[in-house]
Design a protein around this nucleic acid. Structure first.
Length: 105
DNA sequence: CGCGGGGCGAGCT
DNA sequence: TAGCTCGCCCCGC
């Protein structure tokens, strides 16, 4: 199970697809849900390579520090933050309150 | 086949 | 809280 990268990719996508609107999940947790206890970095890599038109809520994926894992001066950062705020997620000093918005299965 | 680096994470100082 | 180190896994050179 989860032998090929395609299977792992699917697993991560499926896990990501079940994150409800208004919630966020960490890379590590996402990988975990996908059946990869130590695939946090892989999850991050997959986010990088996500297709533009993908309906997946990639913006709900952040790092364990409750922050967006990319340069604050990048467009991607602003885009992700904008989408999250639009879903009702609060930011405090560029950080998200995982305690409240964190997703847990 | 080793090496360095990355949208990570946990632990220590 | 900020920085650093170390472990994991995947990729490109």
């Amino acid at each position: 199970m989860l032998e090929t990268q395609e299977q792992r990719r699917e697993a991560v996508y499926l896990a990501l697809a079940q994150i409800p609107k208004g919630k966020v999940i960490t890379y590590g947790n996402l990988a975990k849900l996908a059946g990869m206890p130590n695939g946090a970095r892989l999850a991050g890599r997959l986010m990088c390579g996500l297709p533009e038109g993908s309906k997946l809520p990639w913006h709900r994926v952040i790092n364990s520090q409750g922050k967006l894992s990319m340069p604050v001066d990048s467009d991607g950062y602003r885009e992700q933050k904008r989408r999250l705020i639009k879903e009702g997620v609060e930011f405090v000093n560029e950080k998200i309150k995982l305690k409240i918005y964190g997703y847990n299965s």
